[in-house]
């Protein structure tokens, strides 16, 4: 990759974000690291700093879509361009809808969907200016098949999936960039997910499913879209009867 290649990574101090940052830094990509944790961000910057690449850090609350425009402006001020965006910030929200306080839906939607969408909006002109911008999002397992997921978690990851598919289809028409959606179960090692994501951005694969379990889930969902929820429903009814 050209040394002038620049990637923005959100959730940079979380496990997936850090794995992405290490791999990209190794291959000579300059980095704009975004996270809410200033201390951890500074430590990661010290670890990755080298004279081969430029590393900048940007402290921003992942649950505040309004901060995305400032992050984009600051990153562009340092690097002058952005070629790749990895929206890797995560929100732990695998709880039942009935148990969640009202504000929790807004927080999860912000971290998983609204902030990445706002960041894509702010960075899109720069991403397509180079003619081959890459947007990579992580729809995880609950975005692949919502059966059995928490309802708020599923809503947010499906929102991200719908956004990424739609924008990907628009960019495919213009040929000036691409959107890549990575689906992985939470048991997958972050470094494996990071490698799959970076490979997809390099090869142009738009839909990436990491791990055998997620792949099986995807095939099952495509072949029988309601089979899983039917089985759960039937089991619950039998359980109620017994």
């Amino acid at each position: 990759m050209s040394p002038r290649n620049v990637a923005v990574i959100t959730g940079a101090t979380q496990r997936l974000g850090t794995a992405l940052a290490r791999r990209l830094a190794q291959s000579g990509v300059s980095l704009a690291l975004v996270d809410g944790d200033a201390g951890a961000l500074a430590r990661l910057e010290r670890e990755l700093a080298s004279n081969r690449i430029v590393v900048s850090t940007h402290v921003a609350d992942p649950a505040d879509p309004g901060a995305a425009a400032d992050v984009a402006t600051a990153a562009l001020a340092v690097h002058g361009r952005v070629d790749q965006l990895y929206a890797a910030a995560r929100a732990d929200a695998d709880r039942a809808f009935a148990d969640l306080p009202a504000g929790e839906f807004d927080r999860v939607m912000a971290v998983v969907a609204r902030t990445p969408i706002a960041l894509v909006r702010a960075l899109l002109p720069s991403l397509v200016a180079g003619g081959a911008g890459r947007v990579v999002v992580f729809a995880e397992r609950s975005g692949l098949d919502a059966t059995g997921a928490g309802a708020v978690d599923a809503a947010a990851h499906y929102a991200l999936r719908g956004f990424a598919s739609g924008l990907g289809n628009e960019l495919a028409l213009s040929g000036r960039g691409s959107v890549h959606v990575v689906y992985a179960t939470s048991t997958q090692p972050p470094d494996r997910v990071a490698r799959a994501a970076i490979d997809a951005a390099a090869s142009g694969r738009r839909r990436v499913i990491v791990g055998g379990a997620a792949r099986a889930l995807s095939w099952l969902d495509r072949a029988f879209p309601v089979a899983q929820s039917r089985l759960i429903g039937a089991a619950a009814r039998l359980g109620v009867r017994a």
Binding site: A96, F97, A98, T147, A149, A155, A156, H157, Y158, S165
Partner: peptide
């Protein structure tokens, strides 16, 4: 509309 689909599907399980 994807979000509504994901929400509904997960809620059915819940």
């Amino acid at each position: 509309k994807f979000a509504v689909r994901g929400f509904a599907t997960a809620l059915r399980g819940e």
